[in-house]
Design a binder for these strands. Sequence first.
DNA 1: TTTTAGACCATTTAATGATTTTAGTCGAAA
DNA 2: TTTCGACTAAAATCATTAAATGGTCTAAAA
Lengths: 202, 202
Amino acid sequence: MDNDNKTMAHSNMQNAIVSIASEVFAKFGFKKTTVDDIAQALRKGKSSIYYYFKSKEDIFKAVVEKEADALREKINVILNSDLTTIDKVRAYVNTRMQAIQVMANYYTLVSERDVNNLDLIEKLRSKYDTEEVSIIKALLTEGVEQKVFQVKDIELSSVVLLTAMKGLEVPLFLEHWRTESLDTILNDMLNMLFYGIVIRNS
Amino acid sequence: MDNDNKTMAHSNMQNAIVSIASEVFAKFGFKKTTVDDIAQALRKGKSSIYYYFKSKEDIFKAVVEKEADALREKINVILNSDLTTIDKVRAYVNTRMQAIQVMANYYTLVSERDVNNLDLIEKLRSKYDTEEVSIIKALLTEGVEQKVFQVKDIELSSVVLLTAMKGLEVPLFLEHWRTESLDTILNDMLNMLFYGIVIRNS
DNA sequence: TTTTAGACCATTTAATGATTTTAGTCGAAA
DNA sequence: TTTCGACTAAAATCATTAAATGGTCTAAAA
């Protein structure tokens, strides 16, 4: 078997592990899932898993990264589209609010708040928050460049918007506090963002 | 001692307990503070405390309520002032963002997230969140009535604003992530809220 | 009559040692 | 190159015992 096929087979096995691990982690959570659980689900020995991954933590990171990729793909379609910047922001927020479902394993780890995993939680949180702030900054910058937006402090505004979205995850997704469709709610919020609440006389 | 003086004396002792308890809770947190700690700080026996309060939880609630009163007093000055509605909102947000310092015991309890106290946390959170939403609704309603604001869904907007403020408590107060003054940061955010980010051509 | 506090109870928490489980490694076999 | 059984060290769990704590009772003091 030449080198490329060997690497391909290696990758295939890694992908298989990540897929199965994703399901096992989803079922039991990070803490309660053992590497032996994952191995058994793959019908292999535990040390086989360690041939492909350095540690349990690395497997979990790969799982979360795969889920993040699914979200990134959707978001990149929006960023690269011909939509107006305003519509891009709308589409982005709508898609981003699916994060809690698409990146279920990451959110579960964060909410577990297990003191033994705070380091892992902080690593992941930092990585994905930084990424999100970059996306929002890019959108705000595009809007400013096209003279559609006026934003005094893009860095601050990006963080504020991300913080607001994250804060709303709980009432919108975990508590189901409103009966209107998510689209309606997000639309109202975005209109507040775009046009403000102060009435300006023409 | 007639009845009024008796009641007065009773209240005085309750106030003394709340004051001292506030300090002890602030020092050790709810969980680590024992009723005996509070009693010793007052140079009394533990069962004396139970003569004035039904439970440790009731003492803590009284402590938090006292702190909340300090914040309410400041906010009521704003609500009852002759300021324009826009300036009232500005002043309210500035004052409200002091909550994390003025209501320190409440915030400490919430961040402890002790599973044995989730019930108490939820009771207090519900109480004070409901109160805050009412204040924001009143301000938005006043603005709409004076035709200064245009808000499609006052209930939703109030909750969104409160959620955003709460979400920003961490970066602004606990992580000191920005070097500008708090006033500057809050001002920028409020301008986003009032006027939006979309440039509207006259 | 009101206030106080020591003694007490039931429950919770902490400490401890023993046992089990788990992450990760090694080396031989396939 | 890949797999896995055996193994190790550390971590986690369990059962038991002791200590601590929230709260109560009742008698004494103010």
